[in-house]
């Protein structure tokens, strides 16, 4: 017997479960997230900063032209390594020297001495085991030096220099719509503002990507530029693109970026997701919180296991 109400209630129940888990909880957990505190910065330093007006317009150009169809804006990391840094050598040079050489047997005395002279310096890089780092830090402290442990995210994206750390929910607080992208036809753009900070480079690249990479399959965005006739005897516009001869416009003309192109570039240059935050720290917090907890970001259980045992 088919009863409409039974089907209705059953379906509603299934929908409600899915709704609570994937719409309501994310909204409660990350939708109402306050601005993140930047680790290691003075109290009250928050992240991210709101986009400047031109960059906000650029986000709309990015959205309108579906840039996210080919470019993601999310950096992934597979784990973390730890690095013991000597911040200050202190006064007891002999003890610190022994501690440094104990911590890293690969260093001979001369190298260790040089290291002490050039603080801050790396004593032990690339540790996967945090206990080893903790022990080295403790030994250095006991010798009277100041030592700290840095967190080094690892993974192919990080190795490609697409970011210093993985991207976390806080990075996107001012993005609307959030353009995470589902596809990497081209490189990730989460930190493109750091990789290519030159606005002129960005403009020329948008005008014709083949200028920088002959084999790039990225289409030219010439409709974001206009050809402008230079009047005889007039000065060329300071805004005109400087193009190589084979890509240059006909004589007597110059290529001027439109407002849209400038806005898009302002948006691209604003893409920087590197501030160390609680979910993705770049150093291990001292004293107040136990170090393992600091690495194990509150919202991300997987990264916690990754961080402790990568």
């Amino acid at each position: 017997m088919n009863r409409g109400p039974v089907i209705f209630l059953g379906t509603l129940l299934a929908f409600a479960l899915s709704f609570f888990a994937f719409v309501l909880f994310p909204q409660v957990q990350v939708g109402r997230q306050p601005l993140a505190a930047v680790l290691g910065a003075p109290d009250g330093t928050t992240y991210p900063a709101e986009l400047p007006g031109q960059a906000r317009q650029g986000a709309m150009i990015y959205q309108a032209n579906g840039c996210a169809a080919c470019h993601s804006q999310q950096v992934r990391q597979t784990g973390v390594n730890f690095k013991v840094m000597l911040a200050e050598a202190g006064t007891n040079t002999a003890a610190v020297l022994t501690a440094v050489m104990d911590a890293n047997p690969k260093l001979d005395e001369a190298a260790a001495r040089a290291l002490l002279q050039n603080t801050p310096a790396t004593v032990l890089p690339g540790l996967s085991d945090k206990k080893v780092a903790d022990a080295a830090q403790k030994a250095l402290k006991n010798a009277g030096a100041k030592a700290e442990i840095k967190v080094e995210p690892t993974g192919p994206d990080i190795a490609r220099a697409w970011g210093a750390r993985r991207t976390v929910a806080a990075d996107y607080l001012f993005d609307s719509p959030v353009q995470l992208g589902a596809q990497r036809v081209g490189p990730d753009l989460a930190n493109v503002g750091l990789r290519y900070p030159d606005a002129n480079w960005q403009l020329v690249h948008l005008y014709n990507p083949q200028i920088y990479a002959a084999k790039s399959p990225m289409p030219p965005y010439k409709f974001l530029f206009h050809l402008h006739k230079v009047e005889a005897g007039a000065q060329p516009s300071p805004d005109a693109l400087t193009l190589p001869a084979e890509f240059a416009p006909p004589a007597g003309y110059e290529v001027i970026p439109t407002d849209d192109a400038r806005a898009l570039v302002a948006y691209l240059l604003s893409r920087k997701a590197v501030a160390p935050v609680f979910d993705a720290p770049l150093s291990v917090a001292q004293a107040a919180t136990p170090a393992t907890n600091a690495v194990a970001g509150g919202t991300n259980a997987a990264s916690a296991t990754n961080a402790v045992a990568p």
């Binding site: 719409v23 994310p26 909204q27 990350v30 939708g31 806080a170 996107y172 607080l173 719509p177």
Partner: peptide, 19 residues
């Protein structure tokens, strides 16, 4: 409602869009 009329904040948007 949550993506168009009154968009939620940050990656909650992405979660709802995927969902």
């Amino acid at each position: 409602g949550l993506l168009g009329c009154a968009p939620v904040r940050g990656v909650a948007q992405a979660a709802i869009a995927w969902w």
